[in-house]
């Protein structure tokens, strides 16, 4: 008698994993001498490219494309920063301090402070610690990212029922995954979902931080990034 073959990861999570884009690298300007401003410019350029990829990734979340265009825009306008930050958190899990924005852009606390990103550093390190303690898997991380987008409390939702169905589909996928993969941890789904308020708080701080940097004309920002920042104000 052989153990039943482990249930194939549910379709939603395997779809999320298969549409995971390859991590981007930072593109620091080789000519500009290293400085806090250069760090910020490199980071804003990277985040704008991440944003482009994330918008395209969102279209591949099971259920997202069945939403109206208005609702797709609404969820992205309200949840984009949370989704971006979860990518940073996931990449930073291997490190005991600092934030890994890209393989070639790792900022420790003093660097974040000097670049004016300390208000972002603190809550994100708290979130990273939580996920390290939970030993979060890649499947859980990509599902949480999709849920953060689906659950982003957009103001102008056109069809609430279809957004609810979108959320339920992701919730079911996470529950199905935990039942199959972590059956012994009966509170795991709840523990993962209870990290989302901190993600929301981190997202608001990040938006305020980049908005302040923009208003002070400290760093040039791409039009898409500014357009999305503007929606969060």
């Amino acid at each position: 008698y052989t153990h039943p073959v482990k249930s194939i990861r549910n379709k939603v999570i395997s779809q999320l994993l298969s549409s995971e884009p390859a991590p981007l690298r930072a593109s620091p300007d080789p000519v500009t001498p290293d400085s806090d401003l250069k760090t910020l410019m490199t980071l804003c350029d990277l985040l704008n490219r991440e944003l482009l990829v994330m918008i395209s990734w969102a279209k591949h979340i099971p259920g997202f494309s069945s939403l109206s265009l208005v609702d797709q825009m609404a969820l992205l306008q309200s949840g984009w920063m949370e989704a971006l930050l979860l990518c940073v958190v996931w990449r930073s899990l291997a490190s005991t301090q600092g934030l890994e924005f890209a393989e070639n852009l790792h900022l420790n606390e003093p660097q974040c402070k000097n670049a004016g990103l300390l208000e972002l550093y603190t809550p994100l390190r708290l979130l990273i610690d939580k996920y390290q303690q939970l030993n979060i898997s890649h499947e859980e991380a990509v599902t949480l990212r999709a849920m953060a987008l689906a659950n982003s409390d957009a103001e102008h939702v056109e069809n609430g029922d279809s957004v609810l169905r979108f959320q339920d589909g992701l919730h079911e996928a996470l529950q199905d995954y935990e039942v199959n993969e972590r059956a012994a941890e009966t509170h795991r789904v709840g523990r993962l979902l209870m990290t989302l308020p901190l993600l929301r708080q981190s997202s608001h701080r990040a938006v305020q931080c980049f908005r302040r940097l923009h208003i002070q004309h400290l760093v040039p920002m791409h039009k898409l990034f500014l357009e999305m920042l503007d929606t969060k104000i």
Binding site: P21, S56, T231
Partner: peptide, 20 residues
């Protein structure tokens, strides 16, 4: 939609994240 024309355009084109 006018205010968020870049997002609007991105949602309508069909680039895959892997390509991007």
């Amino acid at each position: 939609k006018e205010k968020h024309k870049i997002l609007h355009r991105l949602l309508q084109n069909s680039t895959s994240p892997v390509d991007l």
